[in-house]
Design a protein around this nucleic acid. Structure first.
Length: 571
RNA sequence: GCCCCUGUAGCUCAAUGGAUAGAGCAUUGGCCUCCGGAGCCAAAGAUGCUGGUUCAAUUCCAGCCAGGGGCACCA
């Protein structure tokens, strides 16, 4: 739609002001509804070029564009905005589109033939799945859904942190303080050992050395080290699997860092051969041109590798296997420098011209006083949060009148959908790049701007539709005078969905979907409260209101799908 | 010390250089003879400070103040 208006305006400028070149003008939705469905600042830009008054230019453009019949009217407002109002006809056509495409409404083909790899979740083995991992997992999954919706071929890769010195430390800790068979440890107990290691190491720095020694053994393939490591991976994966199931998150491939271990030698050789890496204090490092970034270690002085090397190997492998157009890393902002160094190194290596790299750096969960530290064991475990949220949803269901007829099993299922939806939405609705202050009250809030609010609105729509007889868009021949302003508001909202989807994907910002769908649901609920649907004044109006309800329900469903949030049939 | 990010209502968050800065929570006051009250309405309340660029700045630039993150053998 936006494109169409853009084209019309460009044509108009060409005929009215030949020779004028306008680079980029905006077409946007005005904040206030009385200012139209779209507006443009085009006249300001031309006025600047011609040194004339914007308002006069705006008038001339408006007059030439008025002929287009999708517009009800085109207005010019001081100091020179041109505002476009759609006709009812346009809105009805859009409704038809929604009913025809259903769950596919909003899809596009702009990604056809292109491949995107999304690296998300990527938790560390032998550490509990903390609230911090929720961001990467949930935002990553939402981006996955969004890009797929836009027609891209998408590969979701869970790049497990299953290699590195941390395992040396943990193996050492198990051997020194462990009291039971390795198979019997839970991830929480492993975390305790890890925390203990760091506590002790503060008093006795020699321990760090011991940890590194064990990692060296691991990288060299020493039998005992490998055996313990394998067990640790097994224990963790089992636990992660449980959480992924709960969250409804899936990956196309799960390749841990250890997968790339056989390729590391080759990478080191290439870095040496191309003279990109050099020796310094016994380690192998990369220095960047003009000292753009601080140097980075690719091989430690004891011969073991770092995660930088493993990330390079990962990129090489991904380029070869998938030849992607874009690789998205959904990883915390604390690793920003790492990715800058990594992408720069790939550039220096000249591995690819085609592939673009993006680090979608999400802000971190913080306490009101600071950052959660895994080393100190201050993590909030995601599973606890999820279970608590499910329980709270359950309490509300028990109190609710409408859920009386539900069986025990249904109640259980619904509280899961609602509780988990709430936790996800709380995360997704905030701007990805900003830190989130972790607040139990807010995470577990099931009212207001939340997933349950949207789910509730959806369920309510469904309930109305269930009670009604069929409604037909073909029968809808209402004239604008018969519509209430609250109804028009909704019509003027829903057609934006495809645009929002594209915007959210391009900006890596699922929160835009949240903003949009919440606003839509609010408008609908406002309307719902004032006007009867099933007992509307006449058949025509009733039919129209049912159509509106159906469309809103569909958009909520599609939005929540993209966010990775389920919708219940009842609640 | 150097580099990066963030400062919006009491709290938690929105806002693609645009027109009167939006919500939610909390507070106060209203709404179930009516389609699901996990709802609806109303009240009150905000752009850290100082400059600059611009027809127009929460948004861009500079400085200051405050908070956070990162900077060689953790990932």
């Amino acid at each position: 739609m936006k494109e169409k208006i853009k084209k019309t305006l460009e044509d108009s400028v060409k005929t009215l002001f030949p020779g004028i070149k306008i680079q980029k003008f905006q077409i946007e939705h005005p904040e206030r509804k009385e200012l139209g469905d779209y507006s443009t600042n085009l006249a300001f830009l031309i006025a600047k070029e011609l040194k004339e008054k914007p308002i006069e230019i705006a008038n001339r453009i408006a007059t030439s564009v008025k002929k287009e019949k999708i517009f009800e009217r085109v207005e010019v407002k001081e100091p020179g905005f041109i505002n476009f109002f759609f006709s009812l006809d346009f809105f009805f056509k859009e409704l038809k589109k929604i009913f025809k495409k259903k769950e596919n409404y909003g899809k596009s083909k702009i990604g056809k033939g292109k491949t995107v790899i999304i690296d998300y979740s990527s938790p560390n083995i032998a550490k509990p799945f903390g609230i911090g991992h929720l961001r990467s997992t949930i935002i990553g999954q939402a981006l996955y859904n969004l890009y797929k919706f836009l027609g891209y071929k998408v590969i979701g890769d869970n790049h497990l942190g299953d290699w590195g010195t941390q395992f040396g430390k943990l193996i050492f800790a198990i051997k020194k303080w462990g009291k039971k068979k390795i198979d019997d440890y839970s991830v929480n107990e492993l975390e305790e050992l890890y925390v203990k290691f760091h506590k002790e190491a503060e008093k006795n720095p020699q321990l760090e050395e011991e940890g590194r020694k064990w990692f060296k053994k691991l990288e060299e393939g020493e039998r005992e080290a490998r055996k313990i490591w394998k067990t640790l991976v097994k224990i963790s994966l089992k636990e992660f699997e449980r959480i992924y199931n709960l969250l409804g998150v899936k990956f196309d491939v799960v390749l841990g860092e250890s997968f790339y271990e056989p390729m590391l030698k080759e990478i080191i050789e290439e870095l040496k051969k191309k003279k990109i890496a050099k020796e310094s204090q016994g380690a192998l490092i990369i220095e960047f041109p003009n000292n753009e970034f601080p140097p980075v270690i690719v091989q430690k002085s004891d011969g073991t590798t770092t995660y930088f090397t493993r990330d390079l190997a990962t990129i090489k492998y991904r380029l070869k296997r998938w030849n992607p157009d874009l690789i998205i890393y959904e990883v915390g902002v604390d690793q920003k420098l790492h990715f800058q160094q990594l992408f720069k190194t790939v550039e220096i290596l000249r591995w690819t011209k085609k592939t673009k790299f993006v680090h979608v750096a999400h802000g971190l969960y913080r306490t009101k006083t600071g950052k959660f530290s895994t080393r100190k064991g201050e993590t909030v475990h995601l599973e606890d949060v999820l279970n608590e949220a499910i329980e709270r949803a359950r309490e509300i269901i028990e109190k609710s009148e409408t859920s009386r007829g539900l069986t025990e099993k249904e109640k259980e299922k619904i509280s899961k959908i609602v509780g988990i939806g709430a936790v996800k939405y709380n995360d997704l609705s905030q701007h990805p790049s900003k830190d989130i202050v972790f607040d139990w009250g807010k995470v577990l809030n099931l009212k207001g701007n939340s997933a349950p609010y949207l789910q509730y609105t959806f369920v309510r729509c469904q309930s109305v539709l269930r009670k009604a007889k069929k409604s037909q868009i073909e029968n809808c021949k209402l004239r604008i005078e018969k519509l209430k302003k609250e109804e028009i508001e909704i019509l003027r909202e829903i057609y934006k969905f495809p645009e929002i989807v594209q915007d959210a994907a391009e900006k890596f910002s699922p929160n835009l979907i949240c903003n949009f769908v919440f606003e839509l649901a609010r408008n609908y609920n406002f309307f719902y409260d004032i006007y009867p649907i099933l007992k509307a004044e006449d058949k025509e109006i009733k039919n129209f209101r049912l159509l509106l309800t159906k469309a809103v329900a569909q958009i909520i469903q599609n939005s929540l799908f993209l966010l990775g949030i389920e919708v219940p049939k009842r609640m």
